[in-house]
Amino acid sequence: MDLDAYVLERAGEWDRMEQLARRRRLSAAEADELVVLYQRATTHLSVIRSRTPDPVVVADLSRQLLAGRAAINRGGRFSLRPVLHFLTDRFPAELYRTRWWWLTMSALLTGLTAALIWYVAANPDVAGMFLSDADIARLVEEDFVGYYSEYQAQNFAGQVWTNNALLTAQCIAAGVLVVPVFYLLGVNIFNVGMTGGVMVTAGAGDTFLTYISPHGLLELTCLFIGAGVGLRIGWSWIAPGPLRTRRQSLVDRVRSGMLIAVGLVPTLLVAGLLEAYVTPSPLPPLVRISIGAFVWAAFLAYALLLGRSAEARRRADDEAGYDLPSA
């Protein structure tokens, strides 16, 4: 084979492929042309290597093919549209669909925590079973308040965000086995209840509420959502319903749980920022609690009001026959 003639005859196609590969945007016709030229150039390279493998020609054509391949495989530009769709439709719709699970868990666990605080406060000897007198004095006088300002705010925010996101994810993931969710919740409720009871006994109940409310309203709600969604996953294989197998029901609930877990990550970031910057701030207690209550109310409105609208749109699309991803 005359290599020079072969290269001369096809060099125009290779150059054209390289020119298209360098462009930032291609029309549909140009994209199709690039694919065809790339496929033909790979054949040309194979022929050259098998018959007259000139290293210079092989290297130059390989470079052009790499550029063409990179252009073909190049993804589209980053778009915020999927992120906005998730935040305005998918996530709130899933929160609304699962609302009875996490609202029920919120009511039950809040009542249980309040009962534990009352019991510990009414029976001071109970705290003595777990804490020494020195530990109780240090908790009331230093540790409880000092915990929120022990580290720099940005580091503390990252720490509590990571810990809370991990705990919430564990509740969702462990829900398939049901029992571990109650253990995770039990440890958290015990800690809050014991601390609250000790603070109330010492006459520092107002301090406890001042430092737990700004971030705790949103933070604990996220935890209760994780617990409710996790138990919903576990219930899916216990009682899948008459129209679905256990596998179908479990897959559907797990997919929903994954969406909620992703959405709770930025929500818990907000809770972490509140805990790091608002809870220990010098603002008056009423202002700090009001900020936390406002953010918490905004999240509930997002989940229940915007979620209801998003779920209604999803149902309307399903009835219209659109093939939407299963939530």
Results as ranks from 00 to 15, higher is better:
81 R>C: 00
216 G>K: 01
271 A>S: 10
127 A>L: 14
88 T>G: 00
253 R>C: 06
34 L>D: 02
71 A>W: 00
266 P>N: 10
97 R>T: 12
186 G>W: 02
140 V>F: 09
261 A>R: 06
152 Q>R: 09
253 R>T: 04
199 M>V: 07
238 I>D: 10
43 T>N: 11
200 V>E: 09
80 L>I: 04
103 L>M: 13
238 I>E: 05
280 P>R: 02
3 L>I: 15
24 R>Y: 09
155 N>P: 00
287 V>D: 08
118 W>V: 11
96 Y>M: 12
58 V>Q: 02
325 P>C: 04
173 A>Q: 04
66 L>V: 09
110 T>E: 01
247 R>G: 13
87 L>M: 14
251 V>W: 03
302 Y>T: 13
165 A>M: 09
111 G>L: 03
142 E>K: 15
80 L>D: 06
176 V>A: 12
65 L>I: 10
78 F>P: 08
206 D>S: 14
226 G>N: 01
189 I>M: 12
47 V>H: 02
18 E>N: 15
273 L>N: 08
244 R>W: 11
158 G>H: 00
103 L>R: 07
195 T>I: 15
233 I>D: 06
258 M>Q: 01
3 L>Q: 12
84 L>E: 01
48 I>C: 06
319 E>Y: 04
257 G>L: 07
58 V>I: 08
194 M>K: 10
236 S>D: 04
20 L>E: 05
183 Y>F: 13
318 D>P: 02
43 T>Q: 11
265 V>G: 10
56 V>D: 13
313 R>I: 08
75 G>I: 11
21 A>T: 00
209 L>W: 12
152 Q>I: 05
65 L>D: 04
43 T>L: 10
113 T>F: 06
141 E>A: 14
2 D>Y: 03
60 D>I: 10
207 T>P: 03
149 S>H: 12
248 Q>L: 09
104 T>L: 13
58 V>R: 02
218 L>H: 01
